[in-house]
Amino acid sequence: MNFINEFFKQFSDNKIDFVLKKDDEYFYAEKELLELSKKIPDCYPGLSLGKEINGVFSPSLFLLELLAEISKNKVFVSKKAEWNFLCGKDLLPENIVIDESKSNIFLVQNKDDKNLGYAKFEEKNGQKIIKNILDRGDYLRRELN
């Protein structure tokens, strides 16, 4: 469970319970469901929290949503920036309306405190940018391809 715990730690001091790892994927399920799934072969219970891909943990949007409920490591972006971020674009620091980031990696929220994805601060051509790592538009874009 190291990967998911390490990822979780970046956003919250809380621990995530009821996690099951199957192959390279992590699942979130209530205790009873976890117990039951142990008795059923090839059963993938609950909701996916993310996957390990080439030694790197890639979270699911559900996990980000869970984190958004408890984490205080967030930045809130303007309406225009919200759209750009959902289209997979990087943002500029001036797009941040409220900065509550506690580390280099943080959750990106809109005006209504809804999670849009997560990002990190990065330097590009000498300018600080908000590098989009994962956003809610990802699924749609993958559908298009």
Partner: peptide
Amino acid sequence: REHQGWVKA
């Protein structure tokens, strides 16, 4: 105006 909207929200 945007910030005012945020404050209102």
